[in-house]
Amino acid sequence: MRIQRIGSKWAKTKVLQQSEALNERIPLTNEWSIPVLGQMLDEHHMLYVKPDRGTFGNGVIRVEKQADDLYTYQLGTRLKTFSAFDAMARSLQKALQGRHYLIQQGIPLLTYDNRRFDVRVMVQQNLKKQWEATGIIARLGDPSKIVTNCHSGGKAVSFDKLMQPYMTPSQKESYKAWLAEIGLATAQQMQSVYGGVKEIGLDVAIDDSLRPWILEVNTIPDPYIFRKLADKSIFRRIYRYYRANNRKVK
């Protein structure tokens, strides 16, 4: 059996929401509608509108309500500004082209050299079919983009380097252990509903109070991002498990 892929972000979100502990780590997320967009903007002022199905950050839109009651949204590198919510919402509705989208509370990401970054936590079944957190790496976004994905101009960088301005070395080790715990709990929760899940790549935002937020769960995570780490043993282990988990059973 090959790894099971769950494409719907909404389906994965609903699975995680069944866990009280994990639900606390999920930004408020709803299915797209203009009334919901207005309600969420009034409360959070910055949101991400993302396609229910898709990879590499393609199609993700950042929507903001500015202090002067201007509204903006950015898709790719293009920023549009509106003087009224209704005009912005109509334009955004047209941009979605009738596809299924979600609205997610925006989490202000930590920055390094004025570039936003988030974190990827890799969790895999090992050779004994036990869940193991195998790698943690940060993704430093392109300054002109709203997503951090490496396929969209982001850069894979060690977690320790990017967190250096925010934590001591011992605090970073404790924090990585915490992220690993969250990753393991997420993998187990996903597998409780989708039995074929053998690996996850957990995308985590860290806000300015150093609170971790679960942005997305990838069930077919890219192992090759971890080649960027100086410690090559991390990638070798990840790739060994990846090969084992993707082996066809005759």
Rank of each mutant, 00 (worst) to 15 (best):
H45W: 07
H44C: 08
F56A: 12
F56C: 08
R25M: 15
L41W: 05
G59W: 08
Y48K: 09
L37I: 02
G57S: 10
P27C: 13
V36A: 05
I26R: 05
L41N: 02
L47H: 03
V49Y: 04
Q39D: 05
W32Q: 06
G57E: 09
T29E: 09
L41G: 03
H45E: 12
E43R: 14
R53E: 08
R25Y: 14
L41R: 03
G54D: 11
H44M: 13
T29D: 10
H44E: 08
I26S: 06
P27M: 12
K50A: 06
G54L: 01
Y48P: 04
P51Q: 10
V36G: 00
G59S: 10
Q39L: 15
E31M: 12
P27Y: 10
D42N: 14
N58F: 07
Q39C: 07
Y48S: 01
E31T: 12
Q39Y: 13
G57Q: 13
R53L: 08
L41A: 06
R25L: 15
V36N: 00
P35I: 02
T55A: 10
K50F: 08
V49R: 00
T55P: 06
L28E: 14
E31P: 07
Q39V: 13
D52G: 07
G38M: 02
I26A: 09
L37V: 05
H45D: 05
M40L: 04
W32N: 04
P35C: 12
S33E: 06
G38F: 10
W32K: 03
N30Y: 14
F56P: 03
L41Q: 01
M40H: 01
G38T: 03
H45G: 02
N30K: 14
N58P: 00
N30V: 15
L37Q: 05
N58K: 15
M40D: 00
I34V: 15
H45Q: 13
G59D: 10
D52P: 04
F56M: 11
W32A: 09
D52C: 08
T55Y: 11
G59C: 08
L47E: 01
E43F: 01
P35T: 01
V36R: 00
S33P: 06
G59Y: 08
P51S: 12
F56Y: 14
E43L: 04
D42W: 00
T29Y: 11
I34Y: 00
